[in-house]
């Protein structure tokens, strides 16, 4: 806030937001139609995603051009920092809802289902975790912590380290280190996702553990599934950063897109650690 005030960049009118709205309307309508088997749901959904991808490419592309063109000063940079922080906070609260559900079920819900009041309704039901509830139809094997999940923990933690190493490369203006670090991070993310897919297939085919396996299956697949979705998004962001680095974008002083991606990646990392402890281990 000194005497030389820097004009805050306010973008020109843009047609991308309305494409985003049309995309979400198509996606929502398509999903409703598909789930209720009316009309051509899958097609509507697919068109919606296509419009969304067009919007994301166009909008982010414009932001990248504005950023590289020097439109964003210190104030805009500060706005980006605040907003990414608050966005990650909203994501934390999204996961908090599902972690809260797991806590409620294990600490309150199941013991209540098994208590004296309900013993007439479901005699012999005990609140041992993992549980598929009092009406077990299909026995399953719960997921063990010390196999693939433990390896995945190591992989994600290493990816956090390679990403930080890449950031050091950025700060030292060592583009080789930056590229190698980013590439390794994307690779580790891809290995993590591959192992998750393998684990899901194993669960479905050999362990009879499914989304429909009572409350254990519900919480297991929803928590790990939404985490996997976020790893996928993070990996896409990292890939975009890798392409931008290869295109010569970013300087030592000006690379918040990279930092924001790193924040996001560390956030999904921390979520995984909590998942590992409360979903797989305990």
């Amino acid at each position: 806030m000194s005497q030389t005030y820097e004009k805050y960049f306010v973008p020109e009118p843009s047609r991308y937001p309305i494409f985003g709205s049309i995309a979400l309307l198509l996606i929502a309508s398509g999903a409703v139609m598909w789930l209720n088997k009316v009309g051509s749901g899958p097609w509507t959904l697919a068109i919606g995603f296509a419009v969304l991808v067009y919007m994301l490419f166009g909008w982010f592309g414009q932001v990248v051009r504005e950023s590289e063109g020097g439109s964003y000063g210190k104030n805009v940079d500060a706005s980006f920092r605040w907003s990414m922080g608050w966005f990650i906070f909203s994501e934390v609260m999204f996961f908090a809802a599902f972690f809260g559900v797991l806590f409620y079920v294990r600490v309150l819900g199941l013991p209540w289902l098994a208590d004296a009041d309900n013993s007439l309704l479901w005699p012999g039901f005990s609140a041992a975790w993992p549980s598929a509830g009092p009406v077990v139809e299909d026995p399953f094997t719960p997921m063990a912590a010390w196999g693939i999940p433990a390896i995945n923990t190591l992989i994600l933690l290493s990816s956090g380290a390679t990403l930080t190493w890449a950031h050091w490369g950025m700060m030292k203006e060592n583009r080789g280190q930056l590229k190698t670090g980013l590439f390794l991070t994307v690779l580790l993310g891809a290995i993590f996702l591959t192992l998750q897919v393998y684990e899901y297939m194993h669960a479905y085919h050999e362990m009879n553990l499914k989304l429909t396996s009572g409350i254990y299956g519900s919480t297991f697949f929803m928590l790990t599934g939404f985490h996997g979705l976020h790893v996928t998004i993070g990996a896409i962001m990292l890939t975009v950063m890798l392409f931008r680095v290869m295109a010569g974008h970013f300087t030592k002083e000006h690379h918040f897109a990279f930092e924001a991606t790193a924040w996001y990646w560390h956030f999904v990392d921390v979520v995984w650690l909590m998942l590992f402890v409360v979903v797989y281990w305990l």
Binding site: G109, V135, T212, S218
Partner: peptide, 24 residues
């Protein structure tokens, strides 16, 4: 997901709890 994908979050028979919805 309870409606369409067979989860049991709010279904006591599957170990969930309808009251849980109210809490969330």
């Amino acid at each position: 997901t309870d409606r369409h994908f067979g989860t049991s979050f709010f279904n006591a028979a599957g170990g969930g709890d309808p009251v849980l919805y109210q809490h969330v």
